[in-house]
Design a binder for these strands. Structure first.
Lengths: 185, 185
DNA sequence: CGCTAGTTTCACAAATTTGTGAAGTTAAGA
DNA sequence: TCTTAACTTCACAAATTTGTGAAACTAGCG
């Protein structure tokens, strides 16, 4: 397992508190991380990627190193590496080289959810392509062709709605930010 | 990718025929079924359920027996049974007992997509619960708490939008149906 | 009441996925 | 240029998932 890590952490970490992140209850936070990660897994995300993502989300800085992630999640550097590969592929975290060090730092994107929704657009387009071919193979006047055609119409509707939805979100978000700033923070 | 399809469509379009479902090209239909099923799998559905669902979608009657599904997909009755269990759990197909026979018939629901979207509502609610607990554990004034809170806001926004979207879909759908009927079918 | 077509359940084998240790690679700093 | 911390890749073992055959049910029909 990661005994070396724990060992060296136990031996060298002087004030053994890497959660100088305020006064939070690490146990409760870890529970949140695991629970939210599990829900992401249910939604189709790979387990380790979900855990890494949730862990970053729940960190104060929003930026963690590979070693920190490994320690908090009790997994090997290899596992972290694999998870990060996926997460940066789908653009939910980005990699930054920490200047004056050889460590990478991984940052959660702030508009991850917006971006994730936006990516749905491409997926929908791909599905629609398949469905169009299906209608052609089935014959558009056959009952099956008509049924698949209805599915196609639904996804086209969805795709159009998605654009509007994202637009409204941007407005909503900017509005909230304006309010927040106005409140003098 | 779909080069075989295009090719064979271009060159051999008319003849090969073994299905009683009109004049369709079973080979092309099967390709559609597998391709669409694969996309459903990418989206998180279990493989066999996806194949069964796609197969039903591409059938003229919209209703198939276990034996028919087994034959078309080349799988055992046990596999069909498992797939149907899942699909009826999530309410994408329903089971009907064929009168005067001991065979069951499985039918795709016509408003499957609408229903599927509607079910998202519950999932979102569950996620929001987790996120609220997370904000509490992290402290709502901590940077992490604020970040998780923003995620919560996004999902709340999404949930509200979903309601409107479904409403608009129902209108859109009813309108289309009215047009269809008016055209005298 | 059996008899049996049809479905479901169960134990298991095959296939896939996941995470690890260790070797390999890269690049910062001397 | 060399050393070495840090990341990545790779081969493999563990765990999980998936589909099968066979046995166990269910319910029409005689």
């Amino acid at each position: 397992m990661s005994e070396q890590q724990q060992q060296s952490a136990a031996r060298t970490a002087p004030p053994p508190r890497e959660s100088r992140e305020g006064t939070r209850d690490d146990e409760a936070v870890s529970q949140f991380v695991e629970r939210f990660a599990a829900q992401l897994v249910d939604a189709g995300m790979q387990r380790m990627s979900a855990r890494v993502f949730a862990c970053l989300l729940a960190s104060d800085s929003g930026v963690l190193t590979s070693a920190e992630l490994g320690e908090r999640l009790q997994v090997s550097p290899a596992a972290v590496s694999g998870a990060i590969r996926y997460l940066s592929q789908v653009d939910m975290v980005s990699r930054e080289r920490e200047p004056g060090s050889r460590r990478d730092r991984y940052r959660v994107h702030s508009d991850q959810w917006y971006e994730a929704m936006a990516r749905r657009d491409n997926i929908l387009t791909r599905w629609e392509g398949t469905l169009r071919d299906g209608v052609e193979s089935l014959g558009e006047d056959s009952p099956a062709g008509r049924r698949v055609g209805e599915t196609l119409v639904f996804f086209e509707f969805l795709q159009k709605e998605l654009a509007g939805l994202l637009q409204r979100w941007r407005e909503h978000r900017d509005e909230m930010r304006a309010e927040f700033d106005a409140a003098g923070r």
